[in-house]
Amino acid sequence: MNTEKQSHVLIIGASGGVGQALVEYYLTVGWRVTAWSRSRLSITHDALSCVQVQGYHPEQVADAVASLADLSGVISTLGVLHNAEFMPEKHLGAVNAEQLEASFQVNTILPILLLQQLVPKLPRKAPAFWLQLSAKVGSITDNYLGGWYSYRASKAALNMLLKTAAIELARSHKQLVIAAMHPGTTDTGLSKPFQDRLPADKLYSPAQSAARIAAVVEKLATGDSGKLLHWDGTELPY
């Protein structure tokens, strides 16, 4: 994405493996970075503004949103696959309301509400971007293995919400690109329980994934708005 002034990025979920790597990457290439995280970051830099938030519900980030200015783009890394209470469901009998609700809350509801809040902070007449990390397994077309019900469904719903928002906002923010992206399996806590099944060359370091995400951002064009993108920039099917 070519802009005359593209120097300030907001990283949401900046204390996670990919989020922190993105902060480090953009500082290295000379961007101004605002980092939202629930945990305190250990990074210090003159171009970095760290905002520790209690959570990502609208009322919890209202002050942080109000303080933003001159924003060029947003990268949100929010997402949950498992936690202390649940793992991905392997079969229909494991599906339950609590896990579905938890997955949709983090993977679907919070990202779209954050977009709703942050759109007024993005320029209406200049290039800008909103990139939300999603997952290839959220593709309905590409689902050949089944399982992982709540994660797949919440990511598919996320993709639909972003596609719908992209259509609407193209009328008011003609140079804004809203996209979802599959970053590949990255060596973070999210993928840790499943890494032993992967070939070594299919597990990427956070720094690798951050550089790939940034490369996709750099090439975004308005025609990409509403798409689900692979880490190499190719389009994935819904």
Score class of each variant (00 low, 15 high):
Y25F: 10
E85F: 05
V217T: 08
Q54T: 11
V137H: 06
Q54V: 11
R152S: 08
V216M: 10
I109F: 13
R212P: 07
W36S: 00
Q116V: 00
L158W: 06
T141D: 14
K90G: 09
Q175V: 00
N83H: 10
P199Y: 01
E98F: 09
K192Y: 02
T141Q: 10
V33L: 06
K90E: 15
G30F: 06
E59Y: 09
E4S: 06
V65T: 11
A135P: 05
S42T: 14
G73Y: 11
A180Q: 08
F86W: 15
V9Q: 00
Q105L: 15
G233D: 05
Y144N: 08
L118D: 03
L190C: 03
A135F: 02
A64M: 07
P206S: 09
K136L: 14
H173F: 04
L169G: 09
Q208T: 13
A94I: 07
A21Y: 05
L190S: 03
V80R: 09
G16P: 05
K227D: 01
A35N: 09
I167W: 04
N96M: 06
N96Q: 12
K192A: 15
G19R: 01
P193R: 13
A153H: 05
A165K: 12
L22T: 05
V18K: 04
P127C: 10
Q99E: 01
L190M: 15
V51L: 04
G226F: 10
G189K: 11
S76Q: 05
W231F: 14
E59S: 12
G184K: 00
L220H: 09
S225Q: 11
V9N: 00
G55V: 02
D63H: 04
L48P: 02
G146N: 03
L203P: 07
Q132R: 12
R38D: 03
G55F: 08
L10S: 09
S103W: 05
V80H: 01
V53E: 01
L176Y: 11
E4L: 01
